[in-house]
């Protein structure tokens, strides 16, 4: 067995274990934590398409989460459209917004781009908080939208509402695996190489004939679409959305933090980041939120600073190196070309 085969087998094993996990874990609290972990890994992976590969720092991705959440919820509440269809419509809407906002902003350099995405999400939040009715659509301003839960026998796949946590778990896990596969495919495609070259050395890439700006915009559109799907999922999971829950800087920052700590630009980075940080967030929120408010954000900030100072490329590389060293004894012949 070579190193690569070992890694592939480990990944398959992990995925199988993840699918089997609800057989062992039945507590809704723990399942909820796992669902949120997968959801954040999913959103961060989507973020990573533009934040990691394209080499910019978007701090406004919660706009797309918000669009996804609001679109599907409004369509379901007012027209009875299945959230699954709303999810796709929201995704397309987000993609359009991602194009419109990405086209002018992605030409800007580092800090300017980060600032403009921040201003955009704050502006959208303020607007949504001020709008009760957007044309025929009821947004309900700062009070947000409440999805009335259906009785258990009517809940099901079509209405995207389930009486237990397990279906949510499997949907989130499937979404995560699909987006990871997509990222893997993209990072090994011509588009992925263009994107990475444009992120690392824009001038050199342009000199070689890569249209860096349009690659970045395309990545932003795709990332917006994918992130938006998570917004719909979040709305259906919590059944209550309001501007401060889905359209905040906090959410945007958390995605960026997870990706940066995990390792931006690597496929495993967002997953490892979410694995490391989500439990910290959840448990300190559960156990310390009364006595030590904001503790999890302090931990997040300190971890972020320390990681940036000592491992600016994130924790994935050293962790994978550790994995290689541990498994080096088990494999027959270590190969030179392992990734």
């Amino acid at each position: 067995m070579t190193q690569n085969e070992l890694k592939r087998n480990c990944l398959i094993g992990l995925a199988l274990a993840a699918f089997a996990l609800p057989l062992v874990v039945s507590s809704p609290t723990y399942l909820h934590i796992l669902i949120m972990l997968f959801l954040f890994a999913y959103m961060t992976t989507s973020w990573n398409l533009v934040g990691g590969f394209a080499g910019v720092l978007p701090l406004g991705h919660s706009v797309f989460v918000g669009i996804g959440a609001y679109t599907s919820t409004v369509l379901w509440l007012q027209y009875g459209v299945s959230p699954w269809i709303g999810m796709i419509i929201g995704g397309l809407l987000s993609a359009a917004v991602g194009y419109l906002i990405g086209k002018p902003t992605l030409k800007m350099r580092g800090a300017y781009f980060a600032l403009s995405t921040m201003a955009f999400v704050e502006g959208v939040r303020v607007m949504v908080e001020n709008i009760d009715m957007l044309g025929p659509f009821k947004l309900n301003g700062p009070r947000g939208l409440n999805i009335p839960p259906l009785p258990a026998q009517e809940a099901g796949f079509w209405s995207f509402q389930f009486a237990t946590k397990e279906p949510y778990y499997y949907i989130a896990l499937t979404m995560l695996i699909l987006v990871l596969a997509l990222t893997y495919y993209i990072s090994h495609s011509k588009f992925g190489y263009y994107l990475k070259s444009g992120g690392e050395e824009p001038e050199a890439a342009q000199a070689l004939g890569v249209n860096v700006a349009s690659c970045k915009v395309a990545a932003n559109v795709l990332s917006a679409f994918l992130t938006s799907l998570a917004g719909t999922f979040l709305a259906q999971l919590t059944l209550f959305i309001y501007p401060k829950s889905v359209l905040t800087l906090d959410l945007s920052f958390e995605l960026a933090f997870i990706a940066l700590i995990g390792g931006r630009g690597s496929i495993a980075g967002p997953v490892i980041g979410a694995l490391l940080l989500r439990p910290v967030s959840e448990f300190s929120r559960i156990y310390f939120s009364d006595t030590l408010p904001g503790l999890h954000l302090i931990i997040l900030g300190v971890v972020l600073i320390v990681v940036m100072l000592y491992q600016p490329r994130g924790l994935t590389e050293p962790l994978l190196g550790l994995f290689d060293r541990i498994t080096a004894g088990f494999i027959r012949k270590p190969q030179e070309d392992t990734v």
Binding site: L57, I298, L304
Partner: peptide
């Protein structure tokens, strides 16, 4: 990151400082 004129890492670290300071004040 000597050769980078405007390192993105600084944005990240200052954002981390923002979180730590605000929440320390809360704490």
């Amino acid at each position: 990151e000597r050769d980078v004129r405007e390192p993105i890492t600084v944005i990240v670290v200052t954002t981390g400082m923002w979180y730590v300071l605000d929440n320390l004040a809360l704490l």
